[in-house]
Every structure is written in structure tokens, then in C-alpha cells.
């Protein structure tokens, strides 16, 4: 299995980056099993171990996307199998909410994926990571950090523009006469 690569605008090859949150008891162990069984798969996922999928804070996902991940994968125990009874149900609810939220933000919902993978399903780890790499390759880079930079630059331009107008007319807004409010970008 080789990586899914796609030349980017700058000519370098781009390959998607996946941040994966795996629960200690099922999915992390399954990924270990995939290793022990030498099930070759795409090298695009970076696994972060948590005790339970219930620990996945929606902010982790937002942070991962904001810091340059092209997709986020959450792996937990199958329904009824959570080591902590029902952490995976809590995770499922947050996931559904988040999926809608990122869609509203203009991010393709396929970039977020939740899978139940038991400790015996090394094969499924391989399949899911390969599939997700494939999907993200099709979607192309998410590139939130670059977008943030662009937006920052736009804001700067805007601010300069407003300042220039202010200097010329003495007031930015004819109605309020005040200064424009500074907008905070999401990653600030």
C-alpha cells in the first residue's frame, strides 16, 4: 500500500494528514493487532491514544483541523462494548453534532469519520485508514491554516483600507462614526 499523493499547486506532492483518536481498549489495540499482523496500510494517520472515545472533546477535532489536518478519524468500541459502559454513545452524539457544525462551516462532512473497531478488527483499521486516505485525496487539502493566513491578510487590507478612508473623510461609518470592530479569527 502506498500513499495517496497528488501534486499540489506549488508542484510538491501533497498527501492528506489524518489525526486519529483511538480508544485504548478496542481501536488502539486493533491498530496494534494490525501491526503485529503486518497489515500494510497508508501512512497518513497519526494516532493519539485516549482511554475512551468518550474523552474526545469536540475542541480536539476543531483544533486538529485548524492546525492543518485534512481529516479526523475517531475509533471506539462497538455499541455495548465500551470499556466504560457508554462513553462511545456520548462520543456518537458529539460526533453527529460536530458533523453538522463543520458542514455549516463549509467543511466537507466526510473529513470527519467515526468508526467502531473492536480489538480483534486489525483488518478494519487497515481498511478504514486506506478508505479515508482515498476520500481525502479526492477532496484535496483542507488547508485551514493557509486559509486563516489569507483571512488575516484580507482583514489587514480591509483595516488599511478603512484607515485610509477614515483619514480622507474623518469617519469610517457615516452612521456610527466609530472605529470598525476588530474581528478575531478562529485560531487566534
Amino acid at each position: 500500500m502506498t500513499n495517496q499523493t497528488k501534486p499540489s499547486a506549488s508542484g510538491e506532492t501533497w498527501t492528506p494528514r489524518i489525526v486519529a483518536f483511538f480508544c485504548n481498549w478496542c481501536t488502539y489495540t486493533a491498530a496494534d493487532l494490525a501491526g503485529v499482523s503486518r497489515m500494510k496500510h497508508a501512512a497518513n494517520a497519526r494516532v493519539i491514544r485516549l482511554m475512551c472515545s468518550g474523552r474526545v472533546d469536540p475542541q480536539f477535532i476543531v483544533e486538529a483541523l485548524a492546525k492543518g489536518a485534512d481529516g479526523v478519524l475517531i475509533g471506539g468500541c462497538h455499541p455495548n462494548d465500551c470499556h466504560y459502559v457508554e462513553g462511545n454513545y456520548k462520543c456518537l452524539r458529539r460526533y453527529q453534532m460536530l458533523k453538522r457544525m463543520i458542514a455549516d462551516m463549509g467543511i466537507e462532512p466526510e473529513r470527519l469519520r467515526l468508526e467502531w473497531i473492536s480489538a480483534a478488527e486489525g483488518e478494519k483499521v487497515k481498511r478504514v485508514i486506506n478508505e479515508m486516505t482515498e476520500t481525502l485525496t479526492q477532496l484535496g487539502p483542507l488547508g485551514l491554516p493557509q486559509k486563516f493566513d489569507e483571512w488575516d491578510r484580507e482583514m489587514e487590507h480591509f483595516a488599511e483600507h478603512v484607515a485610509a478612508r477614515e483619514a480622507a473623510t474623518g469617519s469610517a461609518c457615516p452612521e456610527h462614526g466609530g472605529k470598525p470592530q476588530t474581528l478575531e479569527t478562529a485560531h487566534a
Binding site: 500500500m1 496494534d32 494490525a34 501491526g35 503486518r38 496500510h41 501512512a43 497519526r46 494516532v47 487497515k126
Partner: peptide
Amino acid sequence: VNTREHNSWVHTDRTEATRKAMAL
């Protein structure tokens, strides 16, 4: 850092695996 089960044993490209080992 789990670089054997999650990395060297499951990947086939040395550059990719080295990159992943660094990231982890």
C-alpha cells in the same frame, strides 16, 4: 511513542515511515 505496531510494521515506504516517526 508507538512506532513499531503503528508505523514500521504497517508501512512500506521508508521516507513516509521516517516522517511519521518524526511527527509522533
